[in-house]
């Protein structure tokens, strides 16, 4: 198990963003669905060791990130793509990916090949030396994915990774996810239900800080057969589960 979360909570002032979440994830692609404000981003931030939990237990890659040493070890094996990733306009694609490879303490000798691999994997090989300010939104998102995968992480956390990607790029991205999910735990937080269905082996649905569903995409589809609204089976399952949770 790469991720073991027990009764995790996170409070900001009076706002209980994450309210008693428990889940486990091993290798594979794990989808995190939910409406805006459900707490997905906060949960992902805790898994990325950006913020500590208020209460509860968190074990990442077999370590407790509460202590400095293990946290550093986790971070070396972590890849994170935040929902809003700024970029350094004057950097090139390769420089940006290299910068974060170095900050993840990758051995310097391995960095050039790792950067080249990551850049090619997100299909930006023809623009490796282009300045970030010349790239479109979708390309910048792919640069973000590249920096997240450059150190071949064992735990990859992606918050809305497909924002700005066109359908063909999304297909490529899902193939990339499946490939990465063979060895690593990939957690994808998205509000695009179709992204989840195609690539994830396990899906969790969050609403108002709690997990209201945690099983396979097929089971989510099954929940939508009776009630649920939407055009696609997964969407119907999604709305059915949400409705049930709120009633």
């Amino acid at each position: 198990m790469n991720v073991e979360i027990t009764d995790l909570t996170r409070r900001f002032g009076r706002n209980q963003a994450v309210d008693g979440v428990s889940l486990q994830a091993g290798p594979g692609v794990f989808g995190l669905l939910g409406p805006n404000g459900a707490g997905k981003t906060t949960l992902l931030r805790m898994m990325a060791t950006v913020i500590p939990p208020t209460t509860g237990h968190l074990r990442l890659l077999g370590r407790d990130p509460g202590a400095y040493g293990p946290r550093r070890e986790v971070r070396r094996r972590l890849g994170y793509l935040p929902q809003n990733l700024g970029y350094y306009p004057g950097f090139t694609v390769a420089e940006f990916v290299e910068y974060f490879a170095l900050l993840k303490e990758m051995p310097a000798a391995r960095v050039p090949a790792a950067v080249a691999t990551a850049v090619e994997r997100v299909d930006l090989g023809g623009r490796a030396k282009a300045k970030l300010r010349t790239l479109s939104g979708g390309m910048l998102r792919r640069v973000g994915i590249a920096q997240a995968i450059v150190n071949e992480p064992e735990l990859l956390l992606l918050d809305e990774p497909t924002a700005g990607l066109d359908p063909e790029q999304r297909v490529n991205f899902r193939a990339l996810l499946r490939d990465l999910g063979q060895r690593a735990t990939v957690v994808v937080s998205t509000h695009l239900v179709e992204d989840v269905g195609a690539a994830c082996s396990q899906v969790a649905l969050m609403d108002q800080g709690k997990i209201v569903f945690d099983a396979t995409p097929d089971e989510l589809t099954a929940r939508g057969t009776e009630q649920g609204t939407g055009d696609a089976p997964l969407e119907r399952g999604y709305t059915a589960v949400l409705a049930a949770a709120r009633s």
């Binding site: 931030r45 971070r75 990733l85 700024g86």
Partner: peptide, 14 residues
């Protein structure tokens, strides 16, 4: 000053 601030908070070099 650092646009990639949140990402920097998840780095091994803190």
């Amino acid at each position: 000053m650092d646009p990639a601030w949140e990402l920097s908070c998840s780095m091994a070099i803190s």
